[in-house]
């Protein structure tokens, strides 16, 4: 629709695959984008080798921040924590496959910001 939100983004927003709670949470973080009122909570579970075995999110946000969180969770499951720590924003934007203006870029990147808050938070807690 008008090149604005590709079908994939709309679908992810309507039917996210990784939204919900985790029975066991190894680390988590939440943050918000006060400008738009988006609130995101990310939960991650790892195995003994610090490989991410499951990741989920909840909170409230726009279609772009919701789709971004869902895509990001899917992407990091099965990856080592160190890889997640090294992720940059271009990697996430490539996954989403959409060009964003400066305002919506914040929506698109909130999930990565919160996920990084979580994985770096674990390190400090150890």
């Amino acid at each position: 629709m008008d090149d604005l939100y590709r079908q994939m983004i709309v679908e992810r927003h309507k039917h996210p695959l990784h939204r919900g709670e985790l029975p066991h949470v190894d680390f988590e973080f939440e943050d918000e984008n006060p400008f738009c009122g988006d609130h995101l909570h990310v939960m991650v579970q790892v195995d003994e080798n610090n490989i991410i075995t499951d990741a989920k999110f909840d909170g409230s946000g726009c279609a772009i921040s919701t789709a971004s969180a869902d895509i990001l969770m899917e992407y990091v499951i099965g990856k080592p924590l160190d890889v997640v720590k090294g992720m940059d924003k271009e990697e996430l934007l490539d996954l989403m496959g959409i060009e964003f203006g400066p305002v919506r870029l914040k929506c698109a990147l909130l999930s990565l910001k919160v996920l990084k808050g979580a994985v770096y938070g674990l390190e400090e807690g150890e």
Binding site: M1, D2, Y5, C62, A63, V103, R104
Partner: peptide, 12 residues
């Protein structure tokens, strides 16, 4: 439906 999405659709 987030206000940003409403606003973005209206902008189109």
């Amino acid at each position: 439906l987030h206000p940003h999405d409403i606003s973005q659709v209206l902008d189109t």
